[in-house]
Amino acid sequence: MNALHDVATEFPPQADLVRPREVESPGYWRQVRNRLSRDPVTIGAGTVLALIVLSALLAPLLAPYDPYQGSIMTRMKPVGFEGHPLGTDETGRDMLSRLLYGGRVSLLAGVAPVAAALAIGGTLGVVAGFFGGLVNTLIMRVTDVFYAFPSILLAIAICGLLGAGLVNTLISLTLVFIPPIIRISESVTTQVRAYDFVEAARASGARPMQLIRHQVLANVLGPILVYATSLVSLSIILAAGLSFLGLGVTPPTAEWGLMLNALRQAIYIDPVLAALPGAMIFVTSMCFNLISDGLRGAMDVRIRT
């Protein structure tokens, strides 16, 4: 029995006016899904991204040639050349095959650091926000120090000092993304901690870990995840940028940033061919940004960075 029914029984003539309609209120996630399904931009970006991811995963099946096997006979062939739909690179390797394989490394270098930073930074941020006090001061002051570096400078510094390679790229980018994720997690957790329902659960005897699991995480994961998706696009650009500088993956690995660098001198011969790897970075990063925007809107998350 809710309050409206009480009113209705007290004042029978108005009963029809105030009786709540039997509307099934859709759950939060269903609302999110409904909003997303009515958002053509996000669906479009999601489809394109799904195709890119799939083609990268299925590269061994889809690639017409070995991405590492070149031939002097077929160097720098233009887009549309017979047998090589996207042409060939400076050592005669098939561009389509290299772009397909390159997507594997580029996507990995884009997503993995953000995922790792999400696990580490998210945990530290929630802990800092939830416990406050000395724990908070300790975690947040260290974060401030990392924050004093522009992200790309930090990535370049770490990669430059540790040496090139995929593992060092992943480590440096993870370190770059941990501080911003800590900041966001800490700030949303501090907000949630102050809500009455958390206080109520605490008063009814819930332990800190229970509170974090049931009351806090359910309310902070959404905003933190949305923020993390917005970092993936930056991570892809930075990872490819590190390879472009020669600080990321090493030749002859098929990777978009490295391919862009290798074809840089080719802009005078075949600019379209030279632009292909960069175009892939651009399209992928754009898709992640559009999806992140769509999620933010659908989940009604407001994040102040």
């Binding site: 696009s233 940033g257 802009i267 632009a275 960069g278 970075i281």
Partner: peptide, 23 residues
Amino acid sequence: AITGVSLPHYWFAIVLVVIFSVT
């Protein structure tokens, strides 16, 4: 605006060079 934040600027720099310097 979203194009601005999604562009790998090192690539865009090369595209600009191709258009305004090379061509």
